[in-house]
Design a binder for these strands. Structure first.
Lengths: 328, 328
DNA sequence: CTGAAAGCGCTTACAG
DNA sequence: CTGAAAGCGCTTACAG
């Protein structure tokens, strides 16, 4: 089925069929005839040919750091729902936390004109990223990190972690923090800073900070380190639920009770937070909504030329569960 | 940059440049000239134009039941690694366990000629699916379910669950099973049947079977039901790790100890299995490898016309952990 | 080994 | 409101 056959069957020129499919500047009578033929034949225009002619692909590239991460999954769900509704298809590019791959994908999308827009689920934003954003000929939106001059939707990491620390460390003497590398500004830098500020606010003289990766293994290892170097530690604030899960597991292996001996908190409110024993006090992040927001921004930018850059900071909600004392 | 500009710069016709890019039936001298120009300009051929001309898209549609599932994530990782290496790009379509959406995506891929091949991560395979497979003009591969006449790679669900049940219920009097709906042949029908056969083999007179969904909530609810109707139950075999995690949680809330009072097993060896307390005895499935296998089959089918259908059954490995007695 | 030519399926000024 | 014509960037018989 091509537009030519439809034109012939409907007794009009293919230009008229094309108009029917696009602006719709066609007489009522021909409209009807064309509509009927299309219905009968089940004709679907070739997107390839359309792209070749218009330069628009109706694809959006979504660069993700990790497949099979709950937060990423929720964001992607939000993104595809908006994109699908606007008739864009999603091209998922998984970097597996490889910064080089991330830049490579961004470049590939740019060079080959394969997408009308790009969404990056951000972790570490380098100068290379910033340069790329400038050079990109299609609109971009970033989630999870604030990027100057680029449309983005991010979380209130500082205040979320500040509140969490107050709640976890209140009434405790020796809080410690298990975080991640500083290069991740949102999850590394801001959350650590918030912990330190809150600990200071609570009057803690010498709060401990350790850093590792985003996984349970890291949580377990650093819990070992902290508890052997500072056995007096009585509150463990963790940058993510995964890390907190690893910490809880190790604490129990060390014969320490949570929350009686040590308070523990995570962040993210993943399903993991409800599975582990004890259930984790955490912060709920609106991941799905943040995906929806980013996709909306992008669609707007793709359809209207005037790329008004917008930054959205998402709220959060403290979720108190068993891993901290109820009196917090 | 178009092929015309390259041709002009290299002083050859665009047909020659095209040949250079494809068969390579070009004199050494011109090859050199063309290579140089391409290197200098960074020219990348337009995939759209190529597709329009050849009918090949170099896209593969991958239909998944759920984003953010560990098993799916692992399979997709395997798939994209193979596909990427063969220069195919992956188009992920997420159905969110909606059978209608699944058929719709399959149809869309078929109608619009947007992909050169399709991989389906299978759950429920209906007659509608089978019909579609027949009508598809591009090769397909299915993972997770055996489908007659279609290339597929699936797991040895029956034997895996049989072994697991022997291990979980050995020396116990009253094993029960928490499974999922029969319509999922692999995870529903086969695993349930294997449990029943193994229970029978162990001499259990009246093994209990309950069915729900794939999540922790289902595990918790059905554990409630089983323990109130059959408080003598001393082994809980679950169709997945998620279900088993929900079961463990509820058992502990009911004041029952695992494994002392009740043995519990899951299946899949997800990271969840190591997080919950106690850690779950389970079966390891080679999800990533199964994705790799399916992608290889598909690539072969796409590149060689002779679509020799192949079925691969993957092995498995019993993983003993804390949730069953060590003497099993 | 190479180039001129046709054509993949569409859209869009242009002239009417 | 409508059609003839050009062209998006490529590939592939065909004739040489």
């Amino acid at each position: 089925m091509t537009i030519n056959e439809i034109a012939q069957l409907a007794g009009v020129s293919r230009a008229t069929v094309s108009r029917y499919l696009n602006d719709g500047y066609v007489s009522e009578e021909k409209k009807k005839r064309i509509a009927k033929v299309i219905a009968q034949t089940g004709y679907v225009p070739s997107q390839q040919a359309r792209t070749l002619r218009t330069g628009k692909t109706r694809f959006v590239g979504v660069v993700i750091p990790k497949i099979n991460s709950e937060s990423v999954g929720r964001e992607v769900a939000g993104i595809t729902s908006v994109l699908g509704a606007s008739d864009y298809r999603t091209l998922l590019a998984n970097t597996d936390n490889d910064e080089t791959a991330e830049v490579a994908y961004l470049n590939a999308f740019r060079e080959q004109g394969q997408v009308d827009g790009i969404i990056l689920i951000g972790t570490v934003i380098t100068d290379e990223h910033r340069r790329l954003f400038e050079e990109l000929s299609v609109p971009v939106a970033v989630t999870g990190q604030r990027v100057e001059g680029v449309s983005c939707v991010y979380f209130d990491d500082y205040n979320a972690m500040y509140d969490l620390t107050l709640c976890c460390a209140a009434g405790r003497e020796h809080p410690a923090y298990i975080g991640v590398f500083e290069r991740d500004y949102a999850a590394g830098h801001l959350r650590t800073q918030a912990f330190l500020d809150a600990a200071h606010q609570l009057g803690c003289a010498d709060p401990v900070v350790e850093r590792g990766l985003f996984d349970m293994g890291s949580g377990a290892t650093l819990t070992d380190k902290i508890m052997s170097e500072r056995p007096e530690t009585d509150a463990l604030v963790c940058a993510t639920d995964e890390i907190a899960a690893g910490a809880c597991k190790r604490l129990s292996q060390l014969g320490l009770r949570v929350p009686e001996d040590v308070h523990v908190t995570g962040l993210g409110d993943s399903s993991l937070a409800r599975v582990v024993t004890p259930q984790l006090t955490t912060v709920h992040y609106y991941y799905r909504t943040s995906g929806v927001e980013a996709a909306r921004m992008l669609v707007e930018a793709m359809e209207q030329g005037n790329a008004a850059v917008r930054e959205t900071k998402m709220g959060y909600k403290l979720v108190l569960r068993e891993s901290t004392a109820a009196d917090a």
